[in-house]
Amino acid sequence: MSLPSRVTLSPAGAARRNPRALGHKLQRPGLYFALPALALFAIFFAYPLASSFWQSMTKTVGGETVFVGLDQYARLFLDPLIGKSLFNAGILLVVQVPLMMSLAVVLAYLLNQSWLRFRGGFRVLHFLPAVTTLVAYSVVFRVMLATDGGAVNQLIGLLGIAPVDWLNNETWARVALIASITWRWTGYNMVIILAGLQAIPEELYEAARLDGAGRRAIFFRIVIPQLRPVLLFTSITSTIGALQLFDENFILTGGGPSDATLTPVLYLYKVGFRQFDFGYASAIGWMIVALTAVIAFVQFRLTREKP
């Protein structure tokens, strides 16, 4: 029996560090495996990516495109709405992403227990929000969050709490947004983590139990470390999801009230598609790429440095 060898998670240098894993002569098959994907990306994304980058250095004057160098990027620093949208995305990153990730890990762990009855049923139910179409989602949440007679306010009314103006108050609109994103995406992440849990060999649990480890110890010393690649994946995609949040706030609040739920991509959309400032919109897009890349890089580093 062999257990997984220690695998580094860094995108850089994995092979350098671990040359014995797969010998030098086995480099080319890797390229063959990746080739269809790389070819498709080259065909369909090289031009759009290059074009949007070029676009970010231009502006339109009376229907004519003019090269302006880095002017659009300079605008980013002076635009209060960029600051505000980044602040809002920051709140999501600090509050919503950890909340959702913890919920998803706990749910996945519970739903992976062999003693659990109705396991399949619970899994389907918790996955339901992820399959709800956007149209249904928007209608349902607006109905539930209505100030007068909305289901949520009726419920908290039973506890003697006064009605909350969910979508018109800056703080509550943020709370409502966080809750509704969490509702929609927790089950989604849960399933990815559940799939990752399946890959943990039973032997690891057995060995830990023989060492007298309790449930808590098993969870933190076996499950979490083994899940690292998958957790890294879900945290990076959730980070991207938070920075690129668009659907939920577009539908629920339109970015309001007073831009309290404006996110960078919603702002980008307004700038590009409502105000037709495509040059500036592209600059915002590449700013988002830079920010996401930095955060993702940090996440890669953090997971690698753990024992």
Binding site: N168, P257, S258, D259, R274, F276
Partner: peptide
Amino acid sequence: AKAQDMVANAVVA
């Protein structure tokens, strides 16, 4: 379009 968004915020304020 740009001004409209800012004005809407002012109305709320």
